[in-house]
């Protein structure tokens, strides 16, 4: 997989949201939701993006999709820098990059039928003159997509509220597949689902990847889900990627103290293992991204912090082959 072409290349991506401190005050503060992340996703692989609530996962995905205008950085999809692309270029790029969202309830228009929701991206493309498709061709495509994601085509004229959570997620996936994209950005697509439905949808993602050679950026907060789907994994903390490695290396030998704590905190459904496990219990809460820190973002909660960590910011560097980590335990400050 490491010899496949780079499909998505994210460089120095920042997304700072301005917040006003008071109604009349001119002084602006910022939420540093994403504060400089770099990573690449190769064709056919799944990059899992994991981290706690508010660490900037969704913001990263949305800034890549240009749903937000990034504060800084570049996002290359193939050779095109999306942050500098024209409106028409962006629309054309959408054909190659689609999103699936967490909430299968909120992300579908309640007044559209399943068939119309799935056909919508095709209709938009047709309208903008980017694609030709007859009404019959669109109908066929919708039925074919429904079958691919495991929905009966007889449900075409039903509305979202007539479907269960898992079925709605299937509609969202069919819509994302409509234009035959190479890359799908999946933002917590199984987090709202029950265990038995979650495994059905995870299998569907894998089957579709095998069949169409899809590339995924897959966001989840559940480390076992990430382990199951990912070829590579990036761990985020407070707006930054703190570690990125091949999935098997990251799970076998986590380097960053935060990754270690995350892995040790995740419960394992086996009472014998649970009884013997030593947890690293972190103190304190996940801090707020409303300021930039002079030192390591994990300093306050890090069980291994050193003096230097308070004063200097570590950066993401290779510690082992294909395994990058941002921590002074592995490299000296510049």
């Amino acid at each position: 997989m490491s010899d496949h072409k780079v499909l998505l290349d994210v460089r120095g991506l920042k997304m700072h949201f301005p917040i006003r401190t008071g109604f009349f005050s001119k002084a602006k503060n910022f939420i540093y939701a994403v504060d400089g992340v770099d990573f690449q996703v190769r064709k056919g692989e799944t990059l899992g993006l994991v981290g706690e609530s508010g660490c900037g996962k969704s913001t990263t995905a949305r800034a890549i999709a240009q749903l937000y205008k990034p504060t800084a950085g570049e996002v290359y999809l193939d050779k095109l820098d999306l942050t500098k692309a024209s409106g028409q270029e962006l629309l054309a790029a959408r054909k190659n990059m689609q999103m699936v969202f967490q909430d299968p309830y909120a992300s579908l228009n309640p007044r559209m039928t399943a068939g119309d929701i799935i056909a919508e991206p095709i209709r938009i493309f047709k309208k903008s003159g980017l694609m030709e498709a007859s009404k019959d061709e669109i109908d066929d495509r919708v039925e074919q997509l429904m079958e691919k994601v495991g929905l009966s085509r007889f449900f075409k004229n039903r509305y979202p509220h007539e479907f269960s959570g898992g079925q709605r997620q299937r509609i969202g996936i069919a819509r994302a597949l409509a234009l035959n994209p190479e890359l799908i950005l999946c933002d917590e697509p199984v987090s709202a689902l029950d265990v038995s439905i979650q495994s059905q949808i995870l299998n569907l993602f894998k089957d579709l990847q095998d069949e169409f050679g899809l590339t995924y950026l897959f966001i989840a907060h559940d480390l076992s889900v990430i382990k199951y789907v990912s070829t590579r994994v990036a761990v985020m903390y407070l707006g930054l990627i703190v570690e990125i490695a091949d999935a098997k290396d990251l799970y076998k030998k986590p380097l960053h103290p935060y990754t270690e704590a995350l892995l040790s905190a995740a419960p394992i459904p086996d009472p014998k293992i649970e009884a013997k496990r030593q947890r690293i219990i972190l103190t304190g809460d996940v801090p707020s991204p409303d300021k930039q820190r002079p030192g390591c973002n994990f300093y306050d909660r890090c069980p291994k912090h050193m003096d230097i960590c308070k004063r200097a910011r570590p950066s993401l560097k290779e510690a082992e082959p294909r395994h990058q980590v941002s921590c002074f335990l592995y490299h000296k400050p510049e």
Binding site: V195, S196, Q198, S224, K227, Y228, K248, L263, P269
Partner: peptide
Amino acid sequence: MGLIRSVPRLDQEAKGRLYSIPGQP
């Protein structure tokens, strides 16, 4: 049985498809 088999596991290698219970509650 189905529930226990359907969850992806942190302590196991991820291989092949997950077991899944068909249908819905």
